[in-house]
Design a protein around this nucleic acid. Structure first.
Lengths: 211, 211
DNA sequence: TAGATTGTTAATCGATTAACAATC
DNA sequence: TAGATTGTTAATCGATTAACAATC
């Protein structure tokens, strides 16, 4: 049990490498070189080797990386070989679209690890309904109990900006360890909880600068 | 004509600062200190001063930053005081949700700079329809001509992963300078074009690592 | 003036790149 | 073996933090 955590740039790229080699047909060629992988990921070969070396020695000199082996190792590093239980907080239009997108990928892709188990909304007319005959919408009052009971560790937050901090506080208190926030607002989380942003407007503003 | 481009970390934080001071009431207190701004943005005061100093001297020693003045300066730096013409490529469920979200913010927020002018989809049953009685869906064949004619510089890509690269190629050929990609795939863009990713699955995979 | 806070410089930290010995 | 490619070390680059003189 080491408290070692790799830098997030490395983890992001590992996820990209995993996506790429998952699409490679290992029957065609069972090995891939850092040069090839780098080309497909849009980074340098040295970066690929450095990133992988963070977690071990996965390659063979003169040959490259065994695709099937590397795939399994990356999945193991990224916790992508087990189920990750998730909740969706806020079933507005965006939340609904993201929720259904997730359910569909979960059905269609074998080994898609993200398992959306519960949705929540303040609107009483939505509570009790099912999304795609599968995902139940609970009231906000039930949030703490459901999250604890179902062992939910990740939450996607698609509530209005003004409500986001309170939602985050309640989620983390109930045991959520990672949050993906779509609301255009800065949030605080307790130590040990990871917060990522998927804020469309912030991305657009960055793009606008470089015009 | 400045060939100077600030690092994207700085630009992202400037966008955050702008969002924060836009919510501050300058009648309450017309000045904000780097300490206060840092607290609200979740960064260090030194970072705030360094970021702002990249573009000029906006503060007064012993006093802080004039909120209204800083707001205008940040808007000017980020190109957020003029209209930015955008297109939406791919009107699936996610594209529809993002498009409508944008139209709504454009209506409700004065000075929201992003102007969604056209949507595109391959599905003939969607072509010709309007989204929220405002945004017309064009066929993919019309993409090049519409983008050039309307002066569209940013594109949000919400097509399936397999179609994304071709869409990007056509957009950039037609004059698009910035792309926000929602498809789970690595893309190549020509020099001078900026590409950002808003890939939910990649974010979730990163979060899963830190569990 | 005295207290506060900026702008800036220097020190630190961390990530990327380049190079190459090890070795399949 | 000869050629290829890894894992790793050292060099480079860039970003963050700390400290403080300038000055409102």
């Amino acid at each position: 049990m080491r408290p070692f955590r790799a830098p997030e740039e490395v983890i992001r790229r590992l996820a990209v490498y995993l996506r790429i080699i998952s699409r490679l047909d290992e029957l065609d060629n069972p090995y891939v070189s850092s040069k090839e992988l780098a080309e497909m990921a849009g980074v340098s070969p040295a970066q690929v080797r450095k990133d992988l070396a963070t977690f071990g020695e996965f390659g063979k000199q003169g040959v490259g990386y065994d695709i099937r082996f590397l795939k399994d190792e990356l999945k193991s590093i990224l916790n992508a070989n087990c189920c990750v239980n998730m909740a969706l907080i806020g079933v507005g239009e965006l939340g609904m679209a993201l929720g259904r997108y997730n359910l569909r990928r979960r059905e269609q892709e074998k080994n898609y690890p993200f398992n959306l188990l519960a949705a929540f909304d303040v609107d009483p007319s939505k509570v009790g309904k099912l999304i795609d005959q599968k995902l139940r919408i609970f009231s906000m009052e039930e949030l703490d109990e459901i999250i604890s009971r179902l062992g939910i560790v990740l939450a996607m937050i698609t509530v209005p900006a003004g409500a986001a901090q309170e939602v985050v506080d309640r989620c983390t208190a109930a045991g959520v360890k990672g949050i993906l926030n779509f609301a255009p607002v800065t949030l605080k989380v307790p130590p040990g909880v990871r917060l990522h942003h998927a804020d469309m407007t912030l991305e657009l503003q960055q793009l606008a600068y470089y015009l």
